[in-house]
Design a protein around this nucleic acid. Structure first.
Lengths: 192, 192
DNA sequence: CCAACCCGTTCACTTAAGTGAAGAAAAACG
DNA sequence: CGTTTTTCTTCACTTAAGTGAACGGGTTGG
């Protein structure tokens, strides 16, 4: 399991055995059961997450309705906004598959960064990558219809379409489960 | 006009007179006429922009139709994705008001950063701020209807509603001008 | 084994956005 | 100043998403 992490890190920086051991000794691997809510609206959290295996969902509750805005799967990191701004969270994070995640609070992050400056570099690269990706995703979302967004999802994240329940996918696409059902039927019809 | 820039910078770092002069001597202020297209699809650009006065629009052309995804006004910076990824641009940037912008290419940025390390710090803070803001904006967009997005715009960016033509606003909200017109009429009706 | 629940789908109906056309008001321009 | 173009609105009609209800197929758990 740790190898997954080190393989990922090695794409950005190279670690010595000593550094790897230091990370392992932090004991930050957590296994999380499906259905667990890791962060609630109004809650203040210090923890950043990194998904090693499984799937997390980010959602808001607006007018009593869940609105999913993101899924996080293998090798994706989550730094909740409330960690940065130190304000209560506006959204929820919950685990939708039995998962293994890496949890680190702000102090721990600072400790690692000061001990291994390399980490700071990796974090900067990751956040630059994230910013660029985020901008593209945002523009894609803005410029497409629910149907196009669904087709796009099949293309770019086929794994999500398989592993995530339809009603959560619908919520993510910004429509109701019934509409997603219809939309899928429409697409099938077009193909034939 | 330069004071606008220095006032902005002073919110993040403090500059000596010497540093200010160094910046002025770069001669990076450009005045841009309304209607000018600063970046076209397919074009490779090295230039980052910063709006001192006026308004820029970012849009894609999809199926022959303009899809606006962002407006940039006073004190907002634009680092086109193509500058970072060094790939041809997928979108257009055009000027919708007579404007004054600050233009700097990659070399110039590197030169400033190495001469004044402070700048690097400011850039990091700015991109962190941008990433956080972007995430919130994205979630807001995903979780709201065109009508809510319009009401939100009135609330958060009343200046845009005033200065930007309706059909561009509509494009930005993801709907047709006719729909925005109807939507506005609907809102007025509700108020009374 | 059956009841309860969750999930996806379908249906009928409502509401909002898309489309195409047309007209009026305002701005731009020679 | 008048003409042209742009911009905004309105209308009638189409299409897609929202809503509420209902059904069947799968779990899950008592």
């Amino acid at each position: 399991m740790q190898d997954l992490l080190f393989d990922f890190i090695s794409k950005y920086i190279s670690l010595t055995e000593e550094e790897k051991n230091a990370i392992i000794s932090l004991d930050i691997f957590r296994s999380v059961k499906k259905g667990t809510t890791l962060l609630k609206e109004g809650q203040k959290s210090q923890d950043s997450l990194f998904v090693l295996k499984g799937c997390m969902r980010k959602y808001y509750i607006i007018d009593g309705e869940e609105k999913t805005t993101a899924f996080f799967t293998e090798m994706e990191g989550i730094t909740p906004n409330c960690v940065i701004s130190k304000t209560p969270s506006e959204y929820y994070l919950s685990c939708i598959e039995d998962s293994i995640v890496l949890v680190s609070d702000a102090d721990m992050g600072a400790a690692i960064n000061s001990k291994f400056p390399k980490f700071e570099i990796m974090c900067r690269i990751l956040s630059e990558e994230l910013l660029a990706k985020q901008q593209i995703d945002f523009d894609e979302f803005k410029t497409s219809s629910p149907e196009q967004r669904y087709l796009n999802l099949i293309d770019k994240r086929p794994d999500l379409v398989q592993r995530v329940p339809q009603h959560l996918l619908a919520s993510y696409l910004g429509i109701k489960p019934q509409s997603l059902s219809r939309l899928r039927a429409r697409i099938l019809e077009k193909k034939s």
